[in-house]
């Protein structure tokens, strides 16, 4: 058993090198298919990331009624709001802070505010960020029922459009990646089938002199796996190098554009590519050798 495995590994690697051109061609095909797949994964990951960032900006503002005494009730209110499902964070904004912000926004025209400054008409408020925009109606309803809450405000339309958009981005990403995975599988198994087909004579001869199917399979399956891994490394290398550069460039010149950080993302992507390449190479050589190995 171990001997068979050892021999398969040795012969499998020999096979990769002794069929140089063919190996190079299949490795290239694997690399290109996986590269396309990886590009889409990068795209999908960034779309998902953008969706996350946008979602984090969804905000519900809870205004307290004028009688609200923040020293007495502030903590309790915050606790109650935090306990509502899908609430990501709560920030207390005192009416003085609110006025300051307003002043900032008015800038040069701040003197217009002088009239209201003696008796601040603003309210204490709590800004809530939401972890799932689908839950927003529920959050608003529950917040409204709390004592000392006067009003709850959020931008309904924006939120709902955003929600639809992020959902679409996510499912499009999943569908695209799935389709590409299928295409990659077909392309890789076709390539491996070609390399095996080119060697059907050799397989025929092995059977003729009494080789067992496992003896014929072993090296060819290892060879397919090695080709898959090599192709995946090539694709991974290109992607890693390209993405690191892209990230550096975006971060330097367009810092406000949300983009997934290379670590640990690239690390995971590389692992995924290697796994996909290896498994696809192995599976497709198993399938294509099977036809010729049957006695």
């Amino acid at each position: 058993m171990w001997r068979l495995l050892g021999r398969s590994v040795v012969e499998g690697f020999k096979g990769v090198f002794s069929h140089g051109l063919m190996s190079l061609a299949s490795m290239g095909t694997v690399a290109i298919s996986l590269l396309v797949l990886a590009l889409f994964l990068v795209l999908a990951a960034n779309l998902a990331y953008v969706a996350d960032v946008l979602e984090e900006q969804v905000e519900v503002v809870v205004y307290c009624n004028p009688e609200f005494d923040r020293d007495q009730w502030g903590d309790l209110l915050m606790d109650k709001l935090s306990d509502i499902p899908a609430v990501a964070s709560v920030t207390f904004v005192t009416k003085e802070e609110a006025l300051d912000r307003l002043r900032e926004q008015f800038g040069a025209q701040a003197e217009l505010l002088e009239a209201v400054e003696e008796d601040n008409p603003l309210r204490d408020s709590v800004e809530i960020t939401v972890s799932n925009p689908a839950e927003i109606d529920n959050i608003v309803q529950q917040a409204r029922q709390l004592e000392s809450v006067e009003d709850v405000v959020y931008q309904r339309e924006v939120v709902q459009r955003l929600y639809a958009l992020t959902e679409a981005l996510r499912s499009a990403g999943v569908v695209l990646v799935f389709l590409l995975a299928v295409a990659t599988f077909l392309l890789i198994s076709n390539t491996v089938r070609l390399t095996i087909y080119a060697r059907r004579e050799q397989i025929e001869i092995m059977k003729l002199v009494g080789a067992t199917p496992a003896f014929i399979w072993g090296p060819l399956v290892i060879e397919g796996t090695v080709l898959g891994l090599l192709g995946a490394s090539l694709a991974g290398g290109v992607i890693a190098w390209g993405y690191a550069d892209l990230f550096a460039a975006v971060e330097a010149s367009l810092p406000f554009v949300p983009i997934v950080r290379p670590t640990p993302f690239l690390h995971n992507l590389l692992q995924l590519l290697l796994a996909v390449g290896g498994v696809l190479g192995m599976l497709s050589s198993c399938f294509s050798v099977w036809r010729y190995v049957r006695l």
Partner: peptide, 17 residues
């Protein structure tokens, strides 16, 4: 079948090397 083929040697017109 493999063990049969080890007991029965075969040659062909086209050698199959």
């Amino acid at each position: 079948i493999p063990s049969l083929r080890r007991k029965v040697g075969v040659v062909f017109q086209d050698f199959k090397l």
